[in-house]
Design a protein around this nucleic acid. Structure first.
Lengths: 112, 112
DNA sequence: AAATATACATTGTTATACTATGTATTTTGT
DNA sequence: ACAAAATACATAGTATAACAATGTATATTT
């Protein structure tokens, strides 16, 4: 009963939220590769990001110069593309945090 | 500097958020007309909803049977279309609140 | 040997915010 | 009295991003 509406709604809420979450994970300066990011975010937030969502997202963030990437060969297995945040990325994520904080305050006001 | 990225990001964050906010305003049971909703939401949350956003949104919520609408003639001026929440709408907004709460908890975890 | 996990990536579909535009009435400013 | 702004509805076109499906290839587990 209206599971479908909720499902679509969650998908829409993720728009914007995911880039915010990814930048926050990278914020510390530690480099992550894509597959690792998906699992890390799932572990911390219980939010599942599809691979078909993450890789285009990382490319967008790279185009915007908020992150950089580097291929790293592995002793065994497939090479990994490591992403790390830029100075501009850190500034941006700070502004995003401000907006999110205000948005949540507003929502708290009307939900209760 | 990257104002454009932030601007686009905010627009994306609003996707999903707006339906949640509208349903929350209607939650009490009081009926609102479109123009009034825009001003009410702006007053409470400082979030500006374009008319070209609100009216299609209200039609979607109506299609989903989360709200109903009724034309009301005015003694003076243009007739107003009043919207009110349905039982199903109330159930839905409760589920949305749960999801939002969890999402925000997760984000708080990674932003600090 | 087969299945699962790791790791990257692209294509096509769908949903929604926003700009621009349109109609029509009422109120406010000069 | 006239112009401008506010009120009140609505639609068409554009841009963006999540996701399912699909594809490639290697490593590990059963």
């Amino acid at each position: 009963m209206n599971e479908d509406f909720i499902h679509k709604w969650i998908s829409q809420v993720k728009k914007g939220t995911l880039s915010f979450i990814v930048l926050n994970v990278l914020k510390s300066g530690k480099a992550y590769y894509g597959y690792d990011l998906i699992n890390e975010i799932k572990k911390i937030t219980e939010i599942e990001i599809a691979e078909g969502t993450l890789y285009p997202l990382m490319n967008r963030l790279k185009d915007e110069k908020l992150i950089i990437s580097e291929w790293v060969e592995q002793e065994s297995g497939i090479p990994r593309k490591y992403y790390s945040i830029t100075h501009e990325g850190k500034n941006t994520v700070t502004k995003m945090e401000e907006y999110w904080h205000n948005l949540n305050q507003s929502i708290l006001k009307i939900t209760k």
